[in-house]
């Protein structure tokens, strides 16, 4: 309920105006090279952009979209496409699709270009002290960020004790077993349908 009140105070920008679309694409372009640890480090930034800065989504919608991107086949970093869609979908599905595709291209373009350069020059990079220091130095920072990201998503998703209990059980099972996460989502979804876990 608190999150809902906070989002109504914030005015969503219209992406039908191409200058806004460019500003948003620029924000994703600028974030691309900071996607350490496989891209999950960016989730709190996406939340900040979509919920606090541009007011495209409520916190609850962000949690929904994160779950959908995790459940759907393919790399879960495609969540950016859904964020972009959320930014413009109220102006019609075509705007939603255009905005979603633009956002995804923007987030992937810089890291892809860097990766091409890295693949072509890896033999020289491999023994460079820069490579060693980058790998060893950024690893622990990524670790800290991932914990912050996990906590943030936990906070926006769970609002009562049963919900926190389900999340903790899933977390332990993710670490201790090789069960497909789709099963956890299916069981939790059923619990939601039966009213065992609620939000708000």
């Amino acid at each position: 309920m608190i999150t809902l009140a906070a989002t109504t105070a914030c005015q969503a920008i219209a992406l039908g105006d191409w200058r806004n679309l460019l500003a948003v694409a620029w924000d994703f372009l600028a974030l691309s090279l900071f996607s350490l640890g496989g891209g999950n480090t960016l989730l709190t930034e996406y939340h900040h952009m979509a919920v606090d800065q541009y007011c495209w989504l409520s916190s609850r919608q962000f949690a929904d979209i994160y779950a959908i991107a995790e459940a759907a086949p393919g790399p879960s970093s495609m969540i950016v496409g859904l964020l972009g869609m959320g930014a413009a979908v109220q102006e019609g599905p075509l705007w939603g699709l255009l905005s979603g595709v633009s956002a995804e291209i923007a987030i992937l373009l810089p890291s892809t270009l860097l990766m091409v350069a890295a693949a072509l020059s890896w033999n020289r990079l491999r023994d460079s002290p820069w490579r060693v220091a980058f790998e060893r130095g950024l690893g622990p920072i990524t670790l800290g960020i991932l914990f912050a990201v996990g906590l943030k998503i936990l906070r926006i998703s769970d609002h009562d004790t049963p919900a926190y209990a389900v999340s903790l059980v899933v977390c332990v099972l993710m670490l201790r077993t090789k069960i497909s996460p789709l099963w956890f989502m299916a069981v939790a979804g059923l619990m939601g349908a039966l009213g065992l876990v609620n939000h708000g």
Partner: peptide, 12 residues
């Protein structure tokens, strides 16, 4: 319900 599971995944 589903978001409680994905939150657990994020925490892991």
């Amino acid at each position: 319900g589903v978001i409680t599971a994905s939150a657990g995944m994020a925490l892991s």
